[in-house]
């Protein structure tokens, strides 16, 4: 049984449905310091709950996580997700990139494809970023998002933990 998750192609990347074989590199990422700014460091059990719930989002909400792969080699590079868990005030665009895939503009390229797809499909879109995560702030700004000091935060989070970048031209 397959969920009909849309496949998006860019010049160098393919965004496709998450598959079981993506879990091993995803879990290795979650166990590393690189997860500090997103999920926090997670053991395999926690990483699975993240991975599976992002995949499950598609049938519940009509959007969710794509696995990002290199079109030329098929190598798994990370995830791009539009997510709206129950404690978020609005949908969020998020990204996770494997260390070996950094510094080549892959996250920007994949996020642009996801943003284009999201237009007209969600009423609004923000990115929640931990203050101090300079790479993600730079990416949000490259995508044209603007800091929104007045936006509601996820339940239980304060401005010391989370800042909100609002993506434009979505609705």
């Amino acid at each position: 049984m397959i969920a009909a998750i849309p496949v998006l192609q860019t010049e160098r990347l393919r965004l496709r449905a998450p598959r079981l074989e993506d879990f091993a590199p995803f879990a290795a990422h979650c166990a590393s310091d690189r997860a500090t700014f997103s999920t926090g460091r997670l053991d395999r059990k926690g990483a699975w709950a993240e991975f599976a719930s992002a995949a499950g989002s598609w049938t519940l909400l009509g959007f969710g996580a794509w696995s990002v792969e290199d079109r030329a080699t098929g190598t798994y590079l990370g995830e791009i997700m539009i997510q709206h868990p129950a404690h978020f005030p609005e949908p969020e665009l998020g990204w996770t990139l494997m260390e070996h895939a950094e510094g080549r503009g892959y996250a920007t390229e994949a996020a642009r494809a996801a943003l284009d797809w999201a237009k007209g499909r969600v009423a609004s879109l923000v990115s929640y970023i931990t203050p101090g995560n300079a790479r993600s702030v730079a990416l949000a700004e490259r995508l044209g998002a603007v800091l929104d000091m007045g936006a509601a935060l996820p339940d239980g989070e304060g401005p010391d933990e989370t800042i909100v970048y609002r993506h434009r031209g979505i609705a």
Partner: peptide, 15 residues
């Protein structure tokens, strides 16, 4: 609750 519910759902296409 959301993570658990979406996990239950995502288990289907993965497994």
């Amino acid at each position: 609750a959301w993570r658990a519910f979406a996990h239950i759902t995502g288990h289907w296409p993965l497994r």
